[in-house]
Nucleic acid binder design. Sequence first.
DNA 1: ATCGCCTAGTCGACTTGTCAACTACTGTAC
DNA 2: GTACAGTAGTTGACAAGTCGACTAGGCGAT
Lengths: 172, 172
Amino acid sequence: MVLARIILGLLAIAPMTGYDLKRHFDSTAGHFWTADKAQIYRTLAKLVADGHAEVETVAGSGAPDRQEHRITAAGEAALAEWLASEPERQTERDPFLARVFFGAGLDEDGLRSLFAGRREAVHERLARYEQLRAENSATDRGARLRLVTLDNGIAHLRTELAWLDAAEEELT
Amino acid sequence: MVLARIILGLLAIAPMTGYDLKRHFDSTAGHFWTADKAQIYRTLAKLVADGHAEVETVAGSGAPDRQEHRITAAGEAALAEWLASEPERQTERDPFLARVFFGAGLDEDGLRSLFAGRREAVHERLARYEQLRAENSATDRGARLRLVTLDNGIAHLRTELAWLDAAEEELT
DNA sequence: ATCGCCTAGTCGACTTGTCAACTACTGTAC
DNA sequence: GTACAGTAGTTGACAAGTCGACTAGGCGAT
């Protein structure tokens, strides 16, 4: 459900193919949602079946044909309805924290490498987000809202780094 | 897979019933994982089938019988193996941020109530975590590790509140 | 020329997670 | 005296997400 709405939201910004959507989930939308491409294509098919989107096959110039998906009026209504509805409650799920939680079953070295791996992953993500942040500017309200969610990701990654410092300090 | 390991980890701390596990996911483990009770009972059955846990029926005094699950040696080995294995990569999924991302489709009031709802939910969670934090002390390495993950949750919730302030400020 | 990568999309099998209903007993509040 | 909340567990139907393999053409490098 959420994925269908997010795709609808992306289609509302611009018509896209499943491939384009996948790239968005791997970059601009990656800080709040991810999706497998199989799932993306299936969801697109469902959106079309529900009349929330339309397909137009665009002949690819030197590339495969593109199935451009465009949001319909019904789709826009469904999106607006979702936005105004009660937010779904968040389910926290962090396998890294789970490992730390049970870290007693790990020796000092194992724990250290667990933290080191996390640190690296967070740094990588942070670099990507900051790059993205620098590439975009808040031209209108929509862009400003999108940037603000990116700032959320950046803030949390910085918090994670600070926590890593404190945690490693405390567990010495 | 992760849920099975987390349950194994909890059983390694103390033998438990599915009901006990559910309460843990709703409290002490809730900051890094949640689980539906149907899923918990099914996973427990799988752990028993795999020889990672054993069941013992304890007659309930005035209450229903309890199916106490105890980790086996094989289960402990599986848990240790998981802890030492490559961490699964994190999939960020936040429906609230998704809503903000597409917030252009919402009027000022809708956006305000979206933020207000989040703020309230975060406050509530933070209060729960801080309560938990105050109730527990770091007696040994295991307890220290568990508390440190709780601190992670607290740090992120505080960051979220700060971000909410900044975001609302910026979007005025 | 052949290998790997990018674009673009499809399919089947599978795992994981969610929802709602249902059984069954106890203790407490109204 | 009965309605509700808590303990304890089960089941079926679904929805959501993951993985790997497959087709198919184009482009650049070796």
